Amino acid sequence: MKIKKILNNNVVITEKGTSEIVVMGRGLAFGKKVGQELLESDVEKVYELTGDGQNRVTELLSGIPDEILEISDDIATLAKNTLTVKINDSLFLTLADHINGVIARLKDDVMIKNFLLWDIKRFFPEEYAIGEKAIAEISLKYAIELNEDEAGFIAMHIVNSELESNNSSIVSELTKLIEEVITIVKYSLQLSLNESDIYYQRFMTHLRFFAERVLLKSSELQEKTGQVDDALYEMIAAKYPEAYQTTQKITGFLMQTRYYDVSADEQMYLTIHLARIIEK
């Protein structure tokens, strides 16, 4: 792979086909010049971007300080090692751009309020925990004090990177959809949901990935599980009528507002989760 641009001794932009990629390695570019070949054995990490970012890497990363690139790599690596879902390589790019903007705003004493913070803490606790570690590292590096709003913003970037879409508004849509479904559950079952309960937490985990599929119009679950057995579906519906009726309200709502047809297997799983909450 040939060097297209050297960001520092450890970070280089090169090309793969028509796309720009970021490669990292200790002393990777030491003594090297643009146009020279890199030894693959010296490459420790590769960030291969997709979508709009694949041809804008040089433009977006040029001028970003080395320490911000290092911090962004630390956070992206932590997310990949901590979370069980796949993290898109775009996270490195968006974090570097975001953190660079944060440092610039702080110099002008400008702080931005994160109006989704409460929902992010509730719906994406693992991503938020990484966000907290990230602001601790940034605060220590720059001798500044970042508040929890910034931890929330970093968590939003992580959630975005988990999705196939790079639409920056996806987290807002995701939290809105989850809140809508939770509201239906509360009013339908007439229950006060205990957020510390294990069955509620399992339901929320399922609901989060279900909401992602709804937004992305994905049939991934159905493709993985196949067509649900009619007899099993009818048995679940009969055994848990209250939970099943709530599932039907969710199904109708999603068809009416999002034109999303909830599969029979997804209805069955939602019903089982709700039944456990009711029994608890």
Rank of each mutant, 00 (worst) to 15 (best):
T225F: 15
T225N: 08
T225S: 12
T225D: 05
G226I: 03
G226A: 04
Q227S: 11
V228A: 11
V228I: 14
D229N: 15
D229K: 04
D229H: 03
D230L: 13
D230H: 10
A231M: 08
A231Y: 10
A231I: 13
L232N: 08
L232Y: 06
L232Q: 08
L232S: 10
Y233P: 01
Y233D: 10
Y233G: 01
M235Q: 14
M235L: 14
M235H: 13
I236C: 05
I236V: 15
I236Q: 01
I236M: 09
A237E: 14
A237L: 03
A237R: 13
A237G: 05
A237W: 01
A237D: 10
A238D: 12
A238R: 12
A238T: 15
K239F: 03
K239I: 02
Y240M: 07
Y240H: 14
P241M: 08
P241T: 05
E242N: 11
E242P: 00
E242C: 00
E242Y: 02
E242W: 00
A243L: 03
A243H: 01
Y244S: 09
Y244C: 03
Q245G: 07
Q245I: 03
T246E: 03
T246W: 05
T246A: 07
T247R: 02
Q248Y: 09
Q248G: 04
Q248S: 08
Q248R: 14
K249L: 11
I250D: 02
I250Q: 02
I250W: 02
I250V: 14
T251E: 12
G252M: 01
G252T: 01
F253W: 09
F253A: 03
F253R: 10
F253K: 06
F253V: 02
F253L: 05
L254E: 07
L254Q: 03
M255D: 10
M255H: 13
M255L: 11
Q256E: 15
Q256N: 12
T257S: 12
R258A: 05
R258E: 11
R258K: 15
Y259K: 15
Y259M: 14
Y260P: 06
Y260N: 03
Y260C: 08
D261N: 09
D261V: 06
D261P: 00
V262C: 04
V262Y: 08
V262G: 05
V262S: 07
V262H: 08
S263W: 06
A264C: 00
E266M: 12
E266D: 13
Q267P: 01
M268E: 12
M268F: 08
M268K: 07
M268A: 13
M268T: 12
Y269P: 01
Y269H: 14
Y269C: 04
Y269M: 15
Y269W: 11
